[in-house]
């Protein structure tokens, strides 16, 4: 919590730094938006985060910083028709990468639980550093967390959003969340469609993101 606060404070201090990572490590740092929809499409959980592997700082940096929330939700919901179609033709739970939204270079992966909950993950590679400013390098040193980002990024699974490695990593991520989701749903007080507010659940999702993405 503390580190979040201090980071947020830094973000305010440096108002115009959409790219705070050094250009070369930035290439594989993805931004993720994960959401769970009930079988009737009520959103019951969502979270945004960035790549943690290969030294990423785990912070999401979407391409439309001001409107990312709305854009992400819009993009995710626009892929629901495809999910619904796949729901009755593919008996697996992990449906893999199912949709791409080219204007935002956003990729959508889906996972369906047997009881009809939908896990949707939007992943967006960072903008190419064509507009990279020298200022961004300076600011990266201000953020303590990015000190280690210069490590080799070849281990990152996100380099190619549709590669088999990425699919596998997302599958692991989804499975891990599925286990937590089942635990939530098993509680006698949890009713289908209720927002998942448990901080422990959120921590679990964050941890799964760190571990696999």
């Amino acid at each position: 919590m503390l580190s979040y606060q201090s980071r947020a404070a830094l973000d305010v201090l440096i108002p115009s730094t959409p790219c705070v990572l050094s250009p070369h490590s930035q290439l594989s740092k993805m931004s993720y938006y994960f959401t769970i929809l009930s079988p009737t499409d009520t959103p019951i959980f969502n979270i945004a985060f960035g790549t943690s592997k290969g030294g990423g700082d785990g912070i999401a940096r979407f391409r439309f910083p001001d409107t990312a929330q709305y854009m992400n939700q819009f993009i995710i919901h626009s892929s629901l028709d495809i999910v619904e179609e796949a729901q009755w033709t593919n008996g697996g739970m992990y449906l893999k990468h199912i949709d791409t939204y080219p204007p935002a270079t956003a990729y959508i992966s889906a996972f369906l639980t047997p009881s009809g909950a939908r896990f949707l993950l939007l992943h967006q590679p960072p903008q190419l550093p064509s507009s990279g400013t020298s200022g961004s390098l300076g600011s990266s040193s201000l953020l303590g967390s990015s000190a280690s980002t210069t490590r080799a990024s070849s281990s990152s699974v996100a380099a190619n959003p549709t590669s088999p490695q990425t699919e596998e990593a997302i599958r692991q991520f989804m499975n891990e969340i599925y286990e937590s989701y089942v635990k939530t749903a098993m509680s006698p007080f949890y009713k289908q469609g209720m927002e998942i507010k448990s901080p422990v659940f959120r921590t679990r999702v964050t941890a799964a993101g760190k571990k696999w993405l």
Partner: peptide
């Protein structure tokens, strides 16, 4: 803040 807030 213009940058993304870590919603997590």
């Amino acid at each position: 803040d213009r940058t993304q807030v870590p919603q997590s």
